[in-house]
Each structure stands twice: as structure tokens, then as C-alpha cells.
């Protein structure tokens, strides 16, 4: 089968391109069928609540701890950079803008991919491997509606909340380091922040970013699980792919969204 030399090389290239487009197509078809089934979840919101627990609540601890430390590091770094210009009063602005615009949505999404996305993929992949999805189909229960759609919706709803918590805790962390330890004026920390952080331009755009990341991260996680080769090796590969693809997608999307939102003065 395998042709050697340049011809074989082109053959492999063509095959992998075909495989890529095939997966892209399957991913979108799955997304459409998930989106089409979301209205059916309204009367059964209990399913979504249960998934918000495993996707959102169980990610809380890592989000809280990382948020606090990221905020504290920002406070420290920001202080030592700003104090050279005598501008340590602006520490609040630096910490808040960094978190609300970028680090909150992005780092929360990366942590989400590692904590919740990988778990979602592994769970769905194992359900496929142990014939649970197929069993549901034979019980006349649509697995996309019963299993995938609630998980997708839960991820999509949880990430913005996690990102907001991350930013809020981070700002508190910056406050602890900047104000309590390094002696920045407390009033300046908050008032400078309030003066330069704009609700619509910064906070709402941050929320929009995290909604977009939540959408993409949940989609990738659910698709990789559903599309996994139903063996233990296949599921482990799918889990890795979820983390890698979500991270890349989040960072790429972040660039595009940032350019769109903050590009124009």
C-alpha cells in the first residue's frame, strides 16, 4: 500500500488533509445536532444542573487557587515595574485590566480544558467504549440529547462564571500583595482601577471572550469523546487531543477576539 519516495509523501499529505476535513465536517455536524437539541433540555434542566456540578463546581478549587496566585504575581511584578516610574498608584489598573481582559478568560479556559474538558472527553469516550451510548440508542434514547447536549451546555455556561471568579479572586490577590504587603495606597488601588476599567469595553468584552472559549472548549471536549476510537488507547488519545486542541483554539481565538475588540481606539 505505502508508496515510497515523494509520491508516498504526497499521498500521506493528501490522506491527512482528507482526514482533517472529514473530522472538521463531523465536528460541525455534531455541533449542529447538539444545538438543535438544546431546546429539548429546557424541561429537563436537572440534567444540565448535574453536569454544571461536575464541570463547574469541581473546577472551582483549581480556579480559586490559581486565580489567587496569578493575581498575587501580577501585584508583585506590576509593583516592581511601576515603582521605577513612580506610578505604583496604577497597580490596580494594571492588575485589573490584565485579568479582566486577558488572563481571566484565557487562563480559566486553559485550566478548564485540563480539568473539565479532559474529564468530559474521557467520560463520553468510555461511555462509547462500554457500549453505553449504543445501549441508550437501543433503549430509544437519543445519546446526543441525553448525554452530549447537557454536557455541552453546562460547559458553555460554567466557563464565564469560572472566568469571572478567577478575575475577581485575582484582583483580590493583587490587592493583598500590592496594598497589604507592599504598601500601595488602598484608595488609589481601587479608584485608579475604577477610573480606567470600562464596564462595556473591558468587562463585557472579557465575558464575551469567556463565552466564546466556553463554547469552543465544550464543543471540542464533547466531540473528541464522541468521536474517540472506542478502546482504552483511543480514549486516552482523545483526551490528550482535547487538551491540546482546546489550548490552541483558545489562544488563537483570543488573538482574533482581542484584535476585534480592542483593535480600534
Amino acid at each position: 500500500m505505502a508508496i515510497k519516495g515523494p509520491a508516498g509523501w504526497f499521498q500521506a499529505l493528501g490522506a491527512s488533509a482528507l482526514g482533517f476535513f472529514e473530522r472538521l465536517g463531523r465536528g460541525h455536524l455534531l455541533l449542529f445536532s447538539i444545538l438543535g437539541r438544546l431546546p429539548a433540555l429546557v424541561p429537563r434542566f436537572g440534567l444540565v444542573v448535574q453536569q454544571i456540578y461536575s464541570v463547574g463546581v469541581l473546577s472551582l478549587l483549581i480556579i480559586l487557587v490559581s486565580g489567587l496566585f496569578v493575581g498575587m504575581v501580577l501585584g508583585l511584578q506590576g509593583y516592581y515595574t511601576l515603582v521605577d516610574f513612580g506610578a505604583e498608584q496604577s497597580l490596580g489598573t494594571v492588575v485589573a485590566l490584565t485579568l479582566v481582559r486577558e488572563l481571566g478568560p484565557v487562563v480559566a479556559a486553559l485550566l478548564f480544558a485540563g480539568r473539565a474538558g479532559s474529564a468530559l472527553t474521557a467520560e463520553i469516550g468510555l461511555m462509547k467504549a462500554t457500549e453505553q451510548l449504543s445501549g441508550m440508542e437501543m433503549m430509544a434514547v437519543d445519546p446526543i440529547k441525553r448525554t452530549l447536549a447537557p454536557r455541552f451546555l453546562a460547559g458553555f455556561l460554567s466557563l464565564p462564571l469560572l472566568a469571572a471568579i478567577f478575575s475577581a479572586i485575582g484582583i483580590m490577590g493583587g490587592y493583598i500583595v500590592g496594598v497589604q504587603l507592599l504598601g500601595v495606597d488602598e484608595g488609589a488601588y481601587w479608584s485608579q482601577m475604577q477610573n480606567s476599567v470600562n464596564f462595556w469595553d473591558d468587562i463585557i468584552n472579557g465575558v464575551i471572550k469567556s463565552l466564546a472559549f466556553g463554547f469552543v472548549a465544550s464543543w471540542i471536549a464533547v466531540f473528541e469523546g464522541y468521536d474517540a476510537v472506542p478502546t482504552s488507547e483511543g480514549v486516552s488519545r482523545a483526551t490528550t487531543r482535547t487538551v491540546v486542541h482546546t489550548s490552541l483554539a483558545v489562544l488563537g481565538l483570543d488573538f482574533i477576539l482581542t484584535a476585534l475588540m480592542f483593535g480600534e481606539p
Partner: peptide
Amino acid sequence: LRQRMGMLFQSGALLTDLNVFDNVAFP
């Protein structure tokens, strides 16, 4: 039609996130 058919998979295909009672109650 499938509601009128039962299928027993080789592995059982029980839903692992539910206990025995909820699995039987599922359909």
C-alpha cells in the same frame, strides 16, 4: 419501535453514572 425491543449488550452497557435502581428506572 425500539421502545418495544430490549437489547442486552455483551458488557451490560449499564450507565456508569447511575446506580442499579436508576439504571432500571432509566427507560
